[in-house]
Design a protein around this nucleic acid. Sequence first.
DNA 1: TATAAAGCCTGTAGTGACTATAGACTCAAG
DNA 2: CTTGAGTCTATAGTCACTACAGGCTTTATA
Lengths: 137, 137
Amino acid sequence: MASQQSEFYIGAVAEMTGVKIETIRYYEKAGVIRPPARGQNGYRLYSMEHVERLEFVKRCRELGFSLDHTSSLLSLADSKERTCKQVSGIAEERLNEVRAKIADLRRMEAVLKNFVKVCPRNLNPECPIISALSKAT
Amino acid sequence: MASQQSEFYIGAVAEMTGVKIETIRYYEKAGVIRPPARGQNGYRLYSMEHVERLEFVKRCRELGFSLDHTSSLLSLADSKERTCKQVSGIAEERLNEVRAKIADLRRMEAVLKNFVKVCPRNLNPECPIISALSKAT
DNA sequence: TATAAAGCCTGTAGTGACTATAGACTCAAG
DNA sequence: CTTGAGTCTATAGTCACTACAGGCTTTATA
């Protein structure tokens, strides 16, 4: 609350956020997070604000948002002119992607499940899986 | 059946299989499919066997098998010493991957669905999505 | 005090599975 | 004879990291 100017080296930030050192530097180069101050030795000096931003990015990434979308969400979080609609637009887009991917994977799962079911799993060379992969349905 | 030695240029093969020209060349360089014969002009000449192999690869890729696993499946398809068990081992591995990914995506879906649900999607800056992303749960 | 270990720096290359481009050659049609 | 389509090679770009190599600085130990 007061003027506690706590600053952290990259290693401490990595430990606090669970984002790897290399990834933090990568985010900086990719323009996702702003470059922090530097000490006399050239070391990056992060403030608590940086740590919070990195946590924001981490949560976005855990939801599968691209770095582009993550950057957009981050600037919306900063902007005073943002509208709730803009934010939910990005979220909806991601939700649709996720649902499409689930549908894809469920199709794959069905086929693979059947493969495993019909396969005798023995030591003979005859295999229904190979047959299925070898000719069109 | 007879000695019909039909040969195709890469463009024809791409059209027949639905695998893009560049991808076919990439598969060759990556060692997934064997290099075909070449005509006097240097053009690749594919046999029907090549076409079938490419279709095999395509089906594997549609099930999400890695190129490594696809290569393994392809050589198992060729091998006389293969066992059904080896094949189903690879399929089971992929099935587990697919199920793990579905589980991941379902978690994301749940969160995103809730985001969209609780978001008023209006023109105000207050947004529960931004709030949720900004602080830890 | 010397030195070693740990941490930080930059820059570059590798990952997977393509996709795209540049520049050159060949081939068929008008 | 020229145009356009098809093919060739080699290289770079994509995404989101990850892993070096080689060189600083800082901290801990002998």
